[in-house]
Write a protein that binds this DNA or RNA. Sequence first.
RNA 1: GCGCCCAUGGCUCAGCUGGAUAGAGCGCCAGACUACGAAUCUGGAUGCCGCAAGUUCGAAUCUUGCUGGGCGCACCA
Length: 554
Amino acid sequence: MKKKLISLIARSVGACAGKGLLPDVDLSRIEVEVPANPEHGDYASNIAMVLASQARQNPRKIAQAIQENLDDPEGIVEKTQIAGPGFLNFMLKDDVWRSVLKDILDQKDRYGCLPAGSGKKVQVEFVSANPTGPLHIGHARGAVVGDVLCNLLAATGQQVSREYYINDAGNQMNNLGRSVLYRLRELAGEAVEFPENGYRGDYIREIAGDIFKKEGSRFRDENEEETIQRFNEAAGAVILDGIRKDLRDFGVTFDCYFSERELYRENGVGRLLDELQKQGFIYSDGETLWFKTTDYGDDKDRVVIRKNGEPTYFAADIAYHANKFSRGFDLLIDIWGADHHGYIPRLEAAIQAIGRPREDLKIILVQLVNLLRAGEPVAMSTRSGEFVTMREVLDEVGRDAARYNFLMRRSDSHLDFDLEVAKKQSNENPVYYVQYAHARICSILRTAQERGMTLPDFPAIRPSLLAEAEERTLIKMMARYPEMLEGAAKTLEVHRITFYLNELAAVFHGYYNKYKVVTQDAALSNARLVLVAAVREVLKNALGILGVGAPEKM
RNA sequence: GCGCCCAUGGCUCAGCUGGAUAGAGCGCCAGACUACGAAUCUGGAUGCCGCAAGUUCGAAUCUUGCUGGGCGCACCA
């Protein structure tokens, strides 16, 4: 709808320019929006004010010229008006609005979506937690935001690949193997002092227990370094399996799990560093190799090969992102915990050094979650093993409520997650508000069916019967749904979907309490059944993108 | 010390990339089921949009400075 109006305005401005009324201007700056106040029309454009400074004319005069030169071959505009400092307001014909109902019922679960393959090839990397322990609640937020973003991008035509990067080469993994070894020694009856920076969670004891059952004290006959390496891999595999299962139960799946070790096979990291050194991005100070990230705005250069000859995490990450691009993606999106924000400049520097514009990598920071129980903070620390896992949250509050709660804030804003509130099935918990609207409509349709009515085809109803203010509001809100999705996809802001859903559900609940859908008047009932069926479809589609269920009964 | 993010009713937060009278939910007060589901609805009170300048037709939104809070600042990942 917006697009149609923009092209109407663009043609009018062009016509004005042709007549010498206006200078030629940049048409890409035409904006159309939905005014906050319905009296200001269905849509409004600020074009005249934008042009005023360029054209050095009174904005109202410009608006008038545009208004007079509007050519509306499809006949969608009922009337226009000039208001305020120079807004051009549009009222659309009722038929235009009612045709939205037809679109929704025709397109069903594709309503609001753009054709597959019409967009870019995008890769989204998210979660990417080290397989050193189960996922906790902070990972859960990143998982949901990433998953929903992928759904959203796919719905708006992008070709999306979901990826989990496994940091399985490095010190953290050695800690894991060592932690297992020490628990195993305890089981074998040795008196040991557990390493300071070891992982203390119970899952380590379980893994050690399994190994002990299988092989007893075999570790005593082995070289310690080799044993740790062996336990790293064994424990990492077990933990990663658990992570995959938790994610799957949370509704999050990946197309690819990419192992950091993969990068080191056939010396991929080394070869890339050599290449960059040839190009002058890497220099040596005799002992270590440095990447000149300051060339691209970082505040200092970064080490890629340590004094001891080992590559840093950053070195691997450069190779990893080069690898991603080599797989043909137009756009990479990384989702990180906000505590990693200091890492952004160096990675942006790196992707520019490997020959990509900065816009080809977008990094979404997800703020940390404050976990509460009935208002009281819950202490969390991975190392000490005192933390609430994603699994526990899932079991306690359920998938739908947990996911919805993570989507109620902008991702860069802190989130208080209260377990008691999230599991309450009450009005404090917005997920049920939206789901209830859906279930209610299903109930209405069941009732209609019991009374012998069937959902009529759109052409069979008299759309002019939908004349109540609430009905018009519902229709207009549903007409905005595709625009909302596009905006959310463009800005990568998934929370917009949640807010939209709350608003649509609110308008519906208000309508429901005021008017009856199934009445003695068959024609009116038919029209209203079509309306609420359309609302149900939009609710279901949006909930589907959020990965939240749309129950028919609750 | 340097850098990034945040600051909007009592609380938790939106505010569609600069628009018209700043909005929701929770909480508080008062009401609505012999009704297609009351997990719902209707009405009411609450705001120097942290402070101060600047940019312009127009600022919660952009710029700069300050205040206050969070997070980073490894040859960890």
